[in-house]
């Protein structure tokens, strides 16, 4: 294997892994705080791709894109994050909050129902066809000669950078701010946090907001990168991102990012070096192996059973 092909596969894996990581954060935070697998999260990501395209189209029609592309992109990103966060909040309010305090599996089923609702709602409103957004960010960074080169497009670079920055901001929020402290307190013991005067319902809502916002960043970047999406993209990506969250240790923020990167890299390398047909088999086999030796994931805290 040539060095440049190998390096290119690393770049591919890094980009893919960053996206998985961003979406995995939503899974891992929600799991950490209320212990449920939010199956509708992948579809929130899908909704954000549509929102990106809609806002971009509006800005283009208003002529903002013609004036300044970076300005338009920033505005689109911010609008998408806000509206997607609202979706995350609404889903929690409508489908999960009424189930608080019942069995742990009830919200899981409600989430599966919500996932069907979101998919079909978007399909009916926006049509089943592929939708796209024009490629606004051009340019490629290329290292190497005529045929032996490693490259990364500007958008891909943006994905990696924005992912890490978003991750950094989130870590800051969780560890340094009052909201973060409330989150961590609620995660450790919801009842106790309630007694201490933390409005846990509000904290849980915030967690859904933040998770959806992260998914929105991923959704916007992905649609800039691939240029197209449909109402079904949430499903496959959602399952992969969830796998990444578990791999890194569910409930752990750095774990989600690490899990995403490992999953992206292993998929990319396996596909490149061995066989694309079985890349998903490899990804899941890796997950099982990791969990056998580290039952709480790579960075997850081991579960302490109290008697």
């Amino acid at each position: 294997m040539d060095w440049h092909i190998f390096a290119q596969q690393l770049v591919n894996g890094l980009v893919l892994g960053s996206i998985y990581g961003l979406i995995a954060i939503g899974y891992t935070m929600v799991y950490g705080i209320i212990g449920m697998i939010n199956f509708a999260h992948g579809d929130i990501y899908m909704v954000s791709a549509y929102l990106t395209a809609i806002f971009l189209a509006i800005l283009t029609m208003l002529g903002v894109t013609a004036v300044s592309v970076p300005l338009a992109l920033v505005v689109v990103m911010l609008l998408t994050i806000m509206f997607t966060a609202l979706y995350g909040w609404t889903v929690e309010r409508v489908a999960y909050r009424p189930l608080r305090g019942s069995t742990r599996l009830a919200p899981l089923i409600s989430a599966i129902g919500m996932s069907l609702v979101l998919q079909n709602y978007v399909q009916i409103s926006q049509g089943a066809r592929n939708q796209g957004i024009p490629s606004l960010i051009e340019g490629t960074l290329r290292v190497g000669g005529e045929s032996a080169y490693v490259q990364i497009t500007t958008v891909q670079l943006l994905i990696v950078v924005v992912s890490f920055v978003a991750m950094g901001i989130l870590t800051y929020i969780i560890h340094k701010t009052s909201l973060g402290r409330q989150c961590r307190a609620t995660q450790q013991d919801r009842k106790m946090a309630n007694i201490l005067g933390i409005n846990t319902d509000r904290v849980i809502s915030m967690v859904f907001l933040i998770g959806a916002a992260m998914a929105a960043i991923a959704g916007a970047l992905v649609s800039f990168n691939y240029g197209s999406f449909d109402f079904y993209i949430g499903f496959v990506t959602g399952i992969k991102a969830f796998t990444a969250a578990v791999l890194g240790g569910i409930g752990s923020l750095p774990g989600a990012m690490l899990g995403g990167l490992i999953l992206g890299l292993s998929e990319s390398l396996f596909s490149g070096l061995i066989n694309t047909d079985y890349k998903d088999v490899f990804a899941f086999a890796l997950l099982v192996l990791v969990l056998i030796f580290r039952p709480s994931g790579l960075l997850g805290k081991p579960e302490v059973e109290k008697v």
């Binding site: 894996g13 980009v15 691939y226 496959v236 990319s268 596909s271 490149g272 694309t276 047909d277």
Partner: peptide, 20 residues
Amino acid sequence: YEGLTRGEKDFNALVTKIRS
């Protein structure tokens, strides 16, 4: 001769393989 997964969008790894 290989198969990709329906529903995915990122085929960069496969493309790099084609390139090689």
